[in-house]
């Protein structure tokens, strides 16, 4: 009996080992933005990288962004947690790392997944529910439109001040919850803007509509090279990509949330 149990245990260990080795887990890089799906343009990559490196230098909070076409058949939060842990995102003593992982839509899988994983140290500031709301309110609407860059930027606009302690869940729920209220607000805003435009255009005809939409969409092209570095004026503190001092050995306990788009 006991021999049989031992055999079973051994078998269980062996199979779990096989699974462990089959898990998708990319090798650590020396960058905070890793786009394995090649979705972001070079200038978007640079922009994000600079922003995150600066944030790391400023606050020691490390935010890793991963965009991948595959999860190796695994659940997205498990993959994100593993990457955060094995790369060591965040400082060891504060565990203040965060992973934003997006599985892009592919031809085989017509849906995408997104998850935010918090290091132990950020679980208090960013509880699962908060992560879920950020995913639902800030990320999924953009991701569904294929706007990966905007989704990440919008999420960072919330996460960064929260990680710094300048913003919190209570304020967030005031600002963004509930969805019905949000829709009304957007509808009202749309109405007001439309009304304004109609009034405006009827007042001064011939002025020519100056449309200011889609400014960056056409922007990405020219900045192909690494050297052209278009990180704009303000961010002088870090010397480009060299500024990232490497991952700090932070640990992750599986906190966070995920969503589908």
């Amino acid at each position: 009996m006991s021999a049989f149990r031992k055999l079973l245990l051994l078998l269980a260990c062996a199979t779990s080992f096989v699974h462990a080795s089959a898990q998708w887990s990319p090798e650590p890089t020396s960058r905070l933005v890793n786009d394995y799906s090649s979705i972001l343009t070079q200038s978007q990559l640079n922009e994000l990288e600079t922003r995150l490196v600066n944030f790391d230098n400023e606050t020691s909070n490390q935010i890793l962004v991963v965009i991948t076409p595959t999860l190796g058949g695994d659940e997205i939060k498990a993959v994100g947690q593993r990457i955060g842990q094995s790369w060591g995102v965040g400082q060891k003593e504060y565990a203040n790392g965060l992973v934003i992982i997006i599985k892009s839509k592919t031809q085989q899988e017509p849906y995408g997944d997104v998850a935010i994983l918090t290091g132990y140290g950020l679980e208090g500031a960013l509880p699962d529910l908060f992560c879920k709301k950020i995913i639902d309110n800030q990320m999924v609407p953009h991701l569904a439109e294929g706007e990966y860059y905007e989704a990440i930027v919008e999420a960072l606009n919330i996460i960064e001040p929260v990680a710094k302690g300048e913003y919190d869940y209570a304020h967030y729920t005031d600002d963004y919850d509930d969805s019905e209220y949000g829709i009304f607000a957007i509808a009202f805003l749309l109405f007001a803007v439309t009304a304004f435009i109609i009034v405006w255009s009827s007042k001064n005809r011939g002025g020519g509509g100056t449309s200011s939409g889609s400014s960056w969409g056409a922007y990405g092209g020219p900045y192909g090279g690494w050297t052209s570095g278009d990180w704009s004026s303000g961010s002088s503190s870090s010397g480009g990509f060299g500024g990232f001092g490497g991952f700090g050995g932070g640990s992750f306990g599986g906190g966070g949330a995920s969503g589908r788009f």
């Binding site: 498990a78 947690q81 699962d128 992750f252 306990g253 599986g254 906190g255």
Partner: peptide, 17 residues
């Protein structure tokens, strides 16, 4: 739905720990 999110996160943490 909030409860679901919290339970899901907890199950995830359990797996990790």
């Amino acid at each position: 739905r909030d409860l679901q999110v919290q339970l899901e996160g907890t199950e995830n943490r359990i797996a990790v720990e």
